[in-house]
């Protein structure tokens, strides 16, 4: 799991970039702003992952990355 809450871009994308280096089938990413949701989703889509976004309480988002 990547907890990128509180970080502003590009840090969340860099954290995800490092995490997908190990080629996991699934990865959960927590962020707390829409810019990060958009940037992480775009990065994941470009790197072979599907993304399901779930809005949690308190302006937080959980992104479920699944390998295509």
């Amino acid at each position: 799991m990547v907890d990128a809450r509180g970080y502003s871009c590009p840090i969340p994308v860099i954290m995800v970039q490092k995490a997908v280096k190990d080629n996991p089938d699934k990865l959960e990413v927590l962020v707390d702003n829409q810019t990060a949701v958009g940037n992480v989703t775009r990065f994941a889509n470009n790197n072979g992952y599907d993304v399901a976004v779930k809005e949690l309480e308190d302006d937080e988002y959980s992104l479920a990355l699944t390998k295509r």
Partner: peptide, 17 residues
């Protein structure tokens, strides 16, 4: 749109965006 002058080159180099 999140337009940013440093973000352009940064994202291109780091993420191919």
């Amino acid at each position: 749109s999140r337009l940013c002058m440093v973000g352009g080159l940064r994202d291109a180099v780091m993420f191919k965006e």
